[in-house]
Amino acid sequence: MTRRKIQIKKIDSITVRQVTFSKRRKGLFKKAQELSTLCDAEIALLVFSSTGKLFDYASSSMQQVIERYDQHSAIQKLGQSSVDLQLEGDENQLSKVVAKRTRELRRLNGEELQECALEELQELEERLQRGLSRVSKTKDERIVKQINARRRKGIQLMEQNQRMEQRLAQEQGQSSESIIICSSSDNPPQDSDSSDTSLKLGLSLFK
């Protein structure tokens, strides 16, 4: 007979529920004892029934396991707190850096200059002049590159035009030669002997 699969849900019958609780609790404690023995694990179990009755199991001492758990929880909380503090400090530092960079950018755009001292304004002017010179240098380099590229493109186009003109000239020369040959073949030269023979035959008939 095969075992039926029990649906995991609350048992409605109080009697059946108590019997099932007693059986499952004993099985749970037995499995905990086996796990502790086989794996040398320190285990503590606390179980409260639906009526509020306490059942416990400890592989060594319940008090020692609870104290060890409290210490471990405190260490975890302390570590998490230190991580949170570090993240909070990094966030504050990052916020300060962002605020500083934003203020510098606004000043470079000519904003919020009223609070700047004379030395800060002079330094800002020097930075702008250096940046402007770099921008002008980069712009000039780009313009020179574009001019050289267009010159090379113009030379390539001129060379292509010359090659096309030479090809057209060769094709026109070949077509004129073919026309001369065709005209000479259509009008062959007459033989002088044949004309003389026709004249002689005409004279003999008149005689």
Rank of each mutant, 00 (worst) to 15 (best):
T138L: 05
F29L: 04
D84E: 04
R130M: 05
H72C: 10
G110Q: 02
G202K: 14
A169D: 08
Q80K: 14
D12I: 12
Q160V: 04
V144W: 11
C116H: 06
I180M: 13
E171L: 10
Q156L: 12
R68L: 05
L87W: 04
S133A: 12
M62F: 04
K31W: 04
I181Q: 15
A169I: 07
K137H: 01
L108F: 00
L132A: 15
E159W: 06
Q160C: 05
R142I: 07
R3A: 15
M62H: 05
V83C: 08
I8E: 12
R130C: 03
I180A: 15
G173V: 10
M164V: 09
S198Q: 08
S204G: 11
R4W: 10
Q160S: 12
L113A: 01
A58G: 02
V47R: 03
S81I: 03
S82A: 09
L105N: 02
A117K: 14
R17K: 07
H72R: 13
V65S: 11
D12W: 10
E120K: 01
L113Y: 00
V144N: 10
F21M: 11
S195H: 07
V98G: 02
T138G: 03
R17L: 05
E159V: 07
A32P: 02
D40A: 09
L121E: 00
S176V: 11
L45T: 00
C39F: 11
L205T: 10
G52N: 05
T102D: 01
F48K: 06
G131L: 08
P189C: 02
Q93V: 08
Q122I: 01
Q170H: 12
I155W: 06
T20M: 08
G89P: 02
E165C: 06
K10T: 06
L105P: 02
S36M: 03
L124M: 01
Q166H: 11
K139C: 06
S82Y: 08
D40S: 14
S198V: 06
R107H: 00
Q86E: 07
V83N: 08
K9E: 06
S73K: 13
K137E: 03
D56I: 06
R107E: 00
S59L: 03
N92S: 13
R25K: 15
R151Y: 12
E112R: 01
R4Y: 13
L201T: 06
H72T: 11
G173A: 12
K10Y: 08
P188H: 03
S95C: 05
E171N: 06
V65L: 15
L108E: 00
K96N: 02
E177H: 13
R4N: 15
Q129L: 14
L121R: 00
R107S: 01
Q129D: 13
A41E: 15
L94H: 05
I75A: 14
R167F: 10
Q170G: 12
K9I: 04
I14K: 14
D70L: 15
L45G: 00
Q129T: 09
P189A: 02
V97W: 05
Q71K: 14
R167S: 15
D140C: 07
D12M: 10
S183W: 09
L199F: 11
V83T: 14
N187A: 09
E91P: 04
A149E: 12
L28K: 03
S59R: 03
